[in-house]
Every structure is written in structure tokens, then in C-alpha cells.
Design a protein around this nucleic acid. Structure first.
Lengths: 147, 147
DNA sequence: CTAGTTGCAAATGTTTTGCAGTCTC
DNA sequence: GAGACTGCAAAACATTTGCAACTAG
């Protein structure tokens, strides 16, 4: 049931944009949904997971699939660390941003009004129409803050 | 006068941390101060400027110098576009973030209370102690918003 | 003089691209 | 069947590193 719903999202988005549903795209999409949905996966992580699933996808193909899914608004890329490989996650309807703990390395999502606040603030006060708000905070999480 | 003050900042920071003042570091620092101080320069831009100044610095050396100056808090790196080369600017005492116009490509600085607001919000409401807040907004600036 | 720095060249790691074969629609 | 898609290998980038020569303190 969950799987079916997942696939449905993918199928519809691809077809509506005139693209084909292929094993590779399905495998990448599935890999992003595995386990905890908060996962931030590098392209290599994703490729690895597709192999574990039995439908091994090539790295180049994974890059192409992710690029397409990003265009379609199904996935989201973030550069949590400059220089490090880009990390991918399924797009979430709520705007959120990333809290990266520099001690334990954990990445949490933070959903809230903050992004909307930023957007309004800029529109009203600055005439800037925000499309995407990329907010990453590095610091120490509640567990690690006292060392 | 302005140049002398510039250099002073650099000299003091380097010496206090036990590093040497070299032509290469001075050239990189100067390159970042050239022209409009709002410039966001890639490493290649910086190298190019050092050559224009007459004190040509190697790319590897520029990377090393920037890494050091970043540690000393004199410069700041930002990844305005995932995948694109990192861009550098002199550190500014005010916390600010970047507004990137997707039409004209311009990058403006926005100084204000927003970053502090984010920081407080996370500390009070979430127990997260923020060290660095990286906020980049992509959208259309006041000039380009109406196409 | 001596350890910190530099330039050059080569290595690393990520992402992109060209192309012949494959598979979806 | 036609054109979109894939895998493989090679290319293109940004960034880092090893090392011998150089130089600031």
C-alpha cells in the first residue's frame, strides 16, 4: 500500500512531464524512501542501495535520474557541507531546513514558520521575491551542546 | 590609508596566530578587497586578480591562503550554488546572508536581525546551539521580479 | 639558520558527457 | 519501430597533496 502510493507519485509525475518510467528511476526513487525517511543520501549511497535492492543502477544514471526528479520537484538536493558530495532526499511538502550537529554529525529537519517568515520579510521589506530558501545551520544539538 | 588599515588587519591576525606574512597572502587579501567590497570571488577570480596586480599567486597557494584566512576569521566562504565553485569574500562583522537573483545573477547582501532571530529561535525552542547560520535565498530581485 | 611557505605537477573525488546498445511507449 | 534511456568509459571540474626549492622571522 505504501509502496503503491509511492510509485503512483513517481509514475504520474513522470508521465505528466512526458518522461518514461524505467527500472533505474524506480530504483532511485525507492532507495530514497528506504528506512527512515529523514535520510540524506549521497549519490553513492543511493547507488549502493539500488544494488542491495537487486536493481543495480549506474552512477551516471543515478545522477541523471536525480537531476530529472529534481526538475519535477520530487526530490531535493542539499549541500550540507561545502566540498562534500551533494545529499538527496525526497521532497517534502513542508518547507524545512537542516540542523547539522558538528559533534555527532546528525542532521535534523526543522519544520516551522521560519522559512515563511524569511520569505515574507524579504518580499515586504526588500522587494525580493524568494523562490527557494536554503537554510543550513551548523551547531550543537540538544544532546551534544554541553559536550 | 585604506590600504594601510587593510594590511594592518591581516598582519595582526597572522602574527597573533603565529603565521607569516607573505606576498601570496597579501595578494589574496588585496584581491578580495579590490573594487566593490561586495564581490563574491571564486578561487580562479582571485588568482586572476593577483596576476593583474603583478603578484601572481598559484591556485594551490590561493586555496591554502584562503583556508588559513578562513580559520582566522578574516574571510568567509559560501556555496551560492550547489556544485559551483565556492565563493569568497572578506568577513564582515555583521552577520548577513545572500540573496541571489536567478534572473540577473546578482548577489546582494542582506544585513539585519534575521540571522539573530533564527539563532534565538533555535536555542530557545529547540535546544540547538547554532554556530554558523548559512542562509541563501534564490529568487528575483526588485529589479527583475516583474520580468 | 630553520621551520613555515610556495609553486609545480600529480592525485583525488565528484559530477558530466559521448556513444553504442537497450528498452519503453 | 522510433526515440528516450542506460551503462560503460573517458572527460571535465574543483580541490588537495607531495615534494623540492625558497624565504620570512
Amino acid at each position: 500500500m505504501e509502496l503503491a502510493e509511492d510509485e503512483h507519485t513517481l509514475v504520474v509525475a513522470l508521465r505528466d512531464a512526458g518522461h518514461r518510467l524505467t527500472d533505474a528511476r524506480r530504483a532511485v526513487w525507492t532507495a530514497l524512501g528506504d528506512g527512515d525517511s529523514d535520510a540524506h543520501l549521497s549519490v553513492d549511497d543511493i547507488v549502493e542501495r539500488t544494488h542491495a535492492q537487486g536493481a543495480g543502477v549506474d552512477r551516471a544514471t543515478a545522477y541523471r535520474a536525480l537531476g530529472l526528479l529534481e526538475e519535477l520537484g520530487l526530490v531535493r538536493a542539499s549541500q550540507l557541507d561545502a566540498g562534500a558530495p551533494v545529499q538527496w532526499e525526497r521532497a517534502h511538502p513542508d518547507e524545512h531546513f537542516h540542523l547539522r550537529c558538528t559533534v555527532c554529525g546528525d542532521v535534523e529537519h526543522h519544520v516551522g514558520t521560519l522559512v515563511a517568515t524569511v520569505r515574507e520579510h524579504l518580499d515586504a521589506g526588500h522587494g525580493f521575491r524568494a523562490d527557494t530558501v536554503e537554510l543550513t545551520v551548523h551547531g550543537r544539538c540538544a544532546r551534544c551542546r554541553d559536550h
